[in-house]
């Protein structure tokens, strides 16, 4: 059993996992149904008149109209998802997309978490370096004397 747990067992594991991931992630799961496409698009649009709901979630009549229009575009045109979203934003006062842009001021919402991650990584690096230096301290004679005295007391 010990032998199994050494590198051959782990190498086998790595190959198996890599193979399974390759098979699974490249597999074609088939076309989405039109309704699933409508769902995905409507999840990216905010309802123009409700409190923080997406067009997908909202039961408001305006959201209903937008969903109907998306369904119409999906079934009768070759437009891509992005083109349909752009059309809806232009024509339905759906001013708010639920995905912030990756450029301009809105890109901060993507950039700041990455900056925070880097800062955390750097802080951890320096913390561990400081701790390592602490550990490397060699006990001096006073330390040894303290320990000896404590042991004698016991």
């Amino acid at each position: 059993m010990k032998q199994l747990k050494r590198w051959p067992g782990w190498m086998l594991l790595v190959f198996v996992v890599a193979g399974l991931l390759a098979v699974g992630s490249t597999r074609d799961s088939g076309a989405r149904t039109p309704e699933e496409r409508v769902q995905e698009i409507s999840k990216q649009l905010a309802c123009p008149v409700c409190n923080g709901e997406t067009v997908y979630e909202s039961r408001n009549s305006q959201s209903d109209s937008i969903r109907t229009e998306i369904a119409k575009q999906v079934s009768s045109t070759d437009a891509t998802d992005d083109e349909i979203i752009a059309f809806i934003v232009q024509n339905f006062d759906a001013r708010t997309q639920l995905v912030p842009n990756a450029s301009g001021f809105e890109s901060l919402v993507w950039v700041l978490p990455s900056v925070a991650l880097v800062c955390a990584g750097v802080a951890l690096y320096f913390a561990f370096r400081r701790w390592r230096n602490t550990i490397d301290l060699v006990p001096d004679d006073d330390d040894r004397q303290l320990v000896a005295t404590a042991l004698e007391r016991e």
Binding site: K43, G52, T54, T96, L98, V99, P100
Partner: peptide, 8 residues
């Protein structure tokens, strides 16, 4: 006005 929702 912008919204940041589920996709983000």
């Amino acid at each position: 006005k912008i919204s940041v929702g589920s996709p983000y």
